Amino acid sequence: MTAPAVELRGVSVHFGRTVALRELDLVVGRGEALALLGPSGSGKSTALKAVAGFVRPHSGRVLLSGVDVTDAPPHRRGLGVVVQNYALFPHMRVADNVAFGLRARRMPRREVEQRVTEVLAMVGMADYRRRYPRELSGGQQQRVAIARALAIRPPVLLLDEPLSALDAALREEMLAELLRLRRELPDTAMVYVTHDQGEALALADRVAVMRDARLVEVGPTAQLYHRPRAEFTASFLGAANLLPVELVAAAPEGSDGSDGTVRADGLATVRLAGAELRAEPTGPLPAGTPVALGVRPHRVEVRADAGLPARLLGVQWRGTGFRLELELDDGSRLRADVSTVDGLPAVGERVGVSIPDGCPLVPAGAGA
């Protein structure tokens, strides 16, 4: 990781008797994009507000570029912030909204005009500088909010669910815009709060998954998606089926398989509904640990006569394909995403399910 732009050291936030954030340790590198991902009430927005200075930690410290700013007010932190409702001043034109932070810093008028022109061009809003927020669409208002945040050239840009108020088409457009800005601002660190895993996967270098005011897991985006170490991460990031399985033979790190029970490829052997499968442990699995197999719906193959016997419980058409609800003979429920249902039996009848080797194996019981 590059030099830290943001550090949270044991940060806890209390609202009365409610613990909104519990002992969060997190580092964001210079130029890195970190997504805080989790369901409502997980503490992700509270963490961002602690960085911004909108809430003061009950305990712990907040550092920006190595400087302790825990007690500093928001306007002393030099951060760019974009919130969900954009918070534009309705009585100010676009250019004045963008210039607000610059004028508060007493920047010379000519430099203010130059900087406003620069950032409005960067977000594609140069032709709208004299309009009021009420004269703009939601996507345009969001662009102005981003321009205002970028105008002060912050080392860190904080975004709190900035796309949640937009319709699907605008979300796609603005996601592409944020990706473009990332390329144009390689030294600006970004902390992006969202409950949408698609946004997190598209934008972030790393993802921090949160739940119940705690950090569950943090790591590179691809690693967390393909090899989650926690059951909750597997279910929330990628909506994996979590199937309770019996661990038949573990796969200790560095094993060469010479004992005949551990496979040389590092995969463990598990039993599901009477069948043995090969799975990839994503962390230590002490003896006796309950385990679950994380299977993404798109990796489940369903045929009339394939693999594990199951019953087809339901079919949902989703435009680009179909979501199948299935039940294995041991009572395990799972979802499968398929492109067609041609050749499959009717709902309530028997089908076959095939699960590929190498699906992640995680400790069970953490809840999903």
Score class of each variant (00 low, 15 high):
Val6Thr: 09
Gly10Trp: 02
Ser12Lys: 09
Val13Gly: 10
His14Leu: 14
His14Tyr: 09
Phe15Pro: 12
Gly16Met: 08
Leu21Phe: 03
Arg22Trp: 10
Arg22Pro: 01
Asp25Ser: 08
Leu26Ala: 02
Gly41Phe: 01
Lys44Gly: 08
Phe54Gln: 08
Arg56Lys: 14
Arg56Ile: 02
Arg56Leu: 08
Gly60Lys: 09
Gly60Thr: 03
Leu63Lys: 03
Val81Ala: 02
Gln84Val: 06
Tyr86His: 09
Ala87Phe: 02
Pro90Arg: 08
Met92Tyr: 11
Val94Met: 04
Val94Glu: 08
Ala95Val: 07
Asn97Asp: 04
Asn97Phe: 04
Leu102Trp: 07
Arg103Gly: 05
Arg106Gly: 02
Arg106Phe: 00
Met107Pro: 08
Pro108Arg: 12
Arg109His: 06
Arg110Tyr: 00
Arg110Gly: 07
Arg110Gln: 15
Glu111Asn: 01
Gln114Trp: 00
Val119His: 08
Ala121Pro: 03
Met122Tyr: 00
Val123His: 03
Asp127Gly: 07
Tyr128Ser: 15
Gly138Asp: 13
Gly139Lys: 15
Gln140Thr: 05
Val144Cys: 06
Ala145Asn: 11
Ala147Lys: 09
Leu159Phe: 04
Pro162Cys: 11
Leu163Cys: 10
Ala165Pro: 06
Ala168Pro: 01
Met174Glu: 13
Ala176Ile: 06
Glu177Asn: 10
Leu178Thr: 02
Arg182Ser: 04
Arg182Phe: 06
Arg183Val: 13
Arg183Asn: 07
Pro186Ser: 12
Asp187Asn: 12
Asp187Tyr: 00
Ala189His: 02
Tyr192Gln: 06
Tyr192Asn: 03
Tyr192Gly: 02
Gly198Met: 09
Gly198Asn: 11
Leu201Ser: 02
Arg206Ala: 04
Val209Ala: 00
Asp212Ile: 00
Ala213Cys: 01
Arg214Phe: 00
Leu215Gln: 07
Tyr225Leu: 13
His226Asp: 15
Arg229Phe: 04
Ala230Tyr: 02
Ala230Asp: 15
Leu247Ser: 10
Asp259Asn: 14
Thr261Phe: 07
Arg263Thr: 09
Arg271Cys: 11
Ala273Tyr: 04
Ala275Lys: 12
Arg278Trp: 11
Thr282Val: 08
Pro284Thr: 05
Pro286Ser: 10
Ala287Gln: 15
Pro290Ser: 12
Ala292Lys: 05
Leu293Trp: 01
Gly294Ala: 15
Gly294Glu: 05
Val295Thr: 05
Arg296Gln: 14
Pro297Tyr: 00
Val300Phe: 08
Arg303Val: 01
Leu308Thr: 08
Leu308Glu: 05
Arg311Asn: 01
Arg311His: 10
Leu313Gly: 07
Leu313Ala: 11
Gly314Pro: 01
Gln316Thr: 14
Arg318Asn: 12
Gly319Val: 09
Phe322Gly: 01
Gly331Gln: 11
Ser332Phe: 03
Arg335Trp: 13
Ala336Thr: 06
Val338Cys: 03
Val341Glu: 01
Val341Cys: 07
Asp342Phe: 00
Ala346Thr: 10
Gly348Trp: 14
Arg350His: 04
Arg350Asp: 05
Ile355Lys: 05
Asp357Glu: 15
Val362Met: 09
Pro363His: 06
Pro363Asp: 13
Gly367Lys: 13
Gly367Arg: 09
